[in-house]
Computed example of a mutant assay.
Amino acid sequence: MAHPVHLLRLTRYDDPALDARVADLLGATACPVTRGDRVLVKPNLVAPRNTALSCSHPAVVRAVCRFALSREARVTVADSPAFGTGRIMARLTGLTASLSDLPVAVANLDEPKPLRLAHGGTIGVSRLALEADCILNVARLKCHDQMGMTLAVKNFFGCVCGFRKSLAHQRLGKDRARFAAMILDVLAALPPTTSLLDGIVAMHKAGPAFGEPFPLGLVGAADNPVALDTAIYTLLGLTPEAVPLWRESERLGLGGTRPEDITYPRERLEAFDATGFVTPPQLSPLAFEPRRFVTGRLKSLLLSLRGSR
């Protein structure tokens, strides 16, 4: 079965054609958003550090919102970051200001609902995500110190509420395959999704917060996030052994894991130069040291308290 991945070249966030080109990409994926749908636009708002590079760019999120509004959907922009809340991070990244003239709500992905995992146990996934009619997933193309890369599929981990993500790192951290399977369980439980990947300026060498900029000039979209990620892995010359999510998706036989099954109706991979893109040479442990875990939770609580004032 062929899995289309739509790619285009775009080198500037202030390009006047950004909105139109994002709308063209999303429309090409047969995105199911229709009038009256409750649409969750899910950016990557990872942490209040290096936000210009570590988080979804406000201009790209705005373009996705405008696409959904053009189809007369009811739009909510929300995430559950590692630190603070979605509302706080939206303000710190400039996203709230960017969306201020649009009829969209900015919210937190909270109200956890237990999701049973295939390997046992449960995890709390936001009711807002589970009950949306459609999710427009706005990911940033980045390296990830613990998982190799964070692209479209990894961005859905943000639908897990708050500190439950840190607990998942602690509980599943000794088994990278099981951690990857948990993320795929979350994806499988969600309503229909369409993913847009921002690689206009990507992050390489490290991540998900403290890497360096890499001007790749790429924006991609697909209704199958696994296929979209596989296209990028192929562009970067990676293998499933280097990326736990790719390896686990392949083991489960998910569609879109085989590069030969992906088609490119617009730009092909050869249109993009990834020469010099550096991925982490060795993956860091998934489980945090106890001191780092406690410190991180205290920082998150402090940020939340400051943001509520």
Results as ranks from 00 to 15, higher is better:
56 S>H: 04
80 S>W: 03
217 G>T: 11
115 L>H: 05
173 G>I: 00
125 V>A: 01
67 F>W: 12
182 M>D: 00
26 L>Y: 05
181 A>I: 01
216 L>W: 03
86 G>N: 05
69 L>Y: 08
201 V>Q: 05
148 G>E: 01
264 Y>H: 13
161 C>H: 01
184 L>C: 08
122 T>F: 12
178 R>V: 03
57 H>D: 02
216 L>V: 06
229 D>S: 06
83 F>P: 03
277 F>K: 09
139 A>Q: 02
221 A>T: 09
68 A>M: 08
214 F>N: 04
164 R>D: 15
35 R>L: 13
120 G>W: 11
267 E>Y: 07
242 A>I: 07
307 G>P: 06
175 D>P: 12
285 P>Q: 13
132 A>P: 01
268 R>S: 14
119 H>P: 02
220 G>P: 04
99 L>Y: 02
110 D>K: 10
289 E>T: 14
268 R>H: 13
304 S>I: 03
67 F>V: 07
60 V>M: 02
293 F>H: 08
257 T>F: 03
256 G>Y: 00
29 T>K: 06
285 P>A: 10
83 F>K: 03
230 T>Y: 04
253 G>R: 09
239 T>P: 03
130 L>M: 13
85 T>R: 06
80 S>T: 12
28 A>V: 10
282 Q>D: 13
143 C>K: 00
139 A>C: 10
161 C>L: 07
38 R>L: 01
17 A>Q: 14
155 N>L: 08
307 G>E: 09
129 A>P: 07
65 C>I: 02
270 E>Y: 06
162 G>I: 00
109 L>M: 12
93 T>W: 00
135 I>W: 03
125 V>Q: 00
21 R>M: 11
88 I>N: 07
170 Q>D: 13
25 L>E: 10
277 F>L: 14
233 Y>Q: 02
188 A>V: 14
298 L>K: 06
104 V>L: 11
170 Q>K: 12
303 L>H: 09
215 P>C: 02
211 G>H: 02
54 S>V: 00
129 A>L: 08
110 D>Y: 12
54 S>C: 10
179 F>D: 00
185 D>E: 11
121 G>D: 05
106 V>R: 02
265 P>Y: 11
2 A>C: 11
100 S>P: 06
278 V>I: 15
160 V>S: 01
75 V>S: 07
193 T>H: 04
182 M>C: 12
142 K>T: 09
279 T>S: 13
91 R>W: 07
167 L>P: 03
165 K>D: 04
100 S>R: 15
201 V>H: 02
24 D>N: 14
220 G>A: 15
25 L>D: 10
131 E>S: 14
305 L>V: 15
267 E>H: 13
29 T>C: 15
296 G>S: 08
47 A>C: 10
31 C>G: 04
111 E>D: 14
128 L>P: 01
31 C>F: 07
244 P>F: 02
99 L>Q: 00
282 Q>M: 10
258 R>D: 15
198 D>G: 06
100 S>C: 13
135 I>L: 09
291 R>S: 13
101 D>N: 13
195 S>I: 05
51 T>Y: 10
109 L>Y: 06
270 E>D: 15
36 G>S: 09
289 E>C: 10
231 A>V: 02
147 M>K: 04
280 P>L: 12
18 L>I: 11
146 Q>V: 15
215 P>I: 00
130 L>K: 12
16 P>A: 12
